[in-house]
Simulated assay, not measured.
Amino acid sequence: MKKLRDVMTKDPTVINAKDSLKAAALKMREQNVGPLPVCDGERLTGIITDRDIVVRAVSQGKDPNGTTVAEAMTGQLEYAFEDEDLSVVAEMMRAKGVRRILALDRNKKLVGIVALSDLLEELAEAEVSETLETISTAPTPAAH
């Protein structure tokens, strides 16, 4: 079975909680991503998404130049370890109702990020492959 490390985006771009929302939006545009993990040095402190910027700041009239990432980020983190089976991670994401999850090593250092769509695509491919293998190795019925 494949592990989270096999499908995650490795070494994701991060941002500091003290940076402005404009800086976060620029990084998102440059990297073509919606979420950015928020780190204070090596320590993971949250995650900010393009939706967080819009809903928690812009829609409330806050200035993206003067509003920090800390003011709009989500502090509650959902993560899995990079060596966990994809099926376990997919179930965790389903149970928690999240579309992306951070990947940590066993020292709890950020090593990647994965979207639910990437996980499901990989699991579906594995299922199809397994089904085809089962079908192709099954004995053919005898002709009457």
Rank of each mutant, 00 (worst) to 15 (best):
V89Q: 01
L120W: 05
A142V: 13
V111Q: 01
P139F: 01
I53P: 05
R29A: 13
L21H: 09
K10W: 08
D19K: 15
P139Q: 00
G97F: 04
N32L: 10
T140Y: 07
A25G: 06
D63Y: 04
L104C: 09
V114Y: 04
S20R: 03
A95G: 13
L36T: 01
G61D: 01
A95V: 13
T67A: 00
L86A: 04
P12M: 07
V58W: 00
T13C: 14
D83S: 11
S129D: 09
M8K: 12
N16S: 15
D85H: 12
M28Y: 00
L123W: 03
F81K: 12
Q60H: 00
Y79G: 12
E84L: 10
K10T: 11
Q31N: 14
L4E: 08
E122V: 08
K22F: 14
I15F: 06
I53H: 02
I47V: 03
D50T: 01
T131G: 06
G34Y: 06
L132I: 06
L104I: 09
Y79C: 14
D83A: 09
R43E: 10
N16R: 15
T137Y: 12
V128A: 14
K22H: 15
P12Y: 06
I113A: 05
R100C: 03
K62M: 01
E133P: 11
E125Y: 13
Q76W: 14
M73T: 11
I53C: 06
E42T: 14
V69R: 07
V89D: 00
V7Q: 06
R99L: 05
E130P: 09
G46V: 02
V88M: 03
I48D: 00
A80M: 15
T13L: 13
A70M: 07
M93Y: 00
D50R: 01
E125V: 12
P37M: 02
I53Y: 01
T137S: 14
L26C: 04
T134A: 11
T131I: 12
K18P: 08
V55F: 00
I135R: 06
P141N: 08
S87C: 10
V98H: 03
E122F: 03
A23E: 05
E122L: 05
D6P: 12
P37Y: 05
L102A: 11
M1A: 02
A17L: 11
A70N: 11
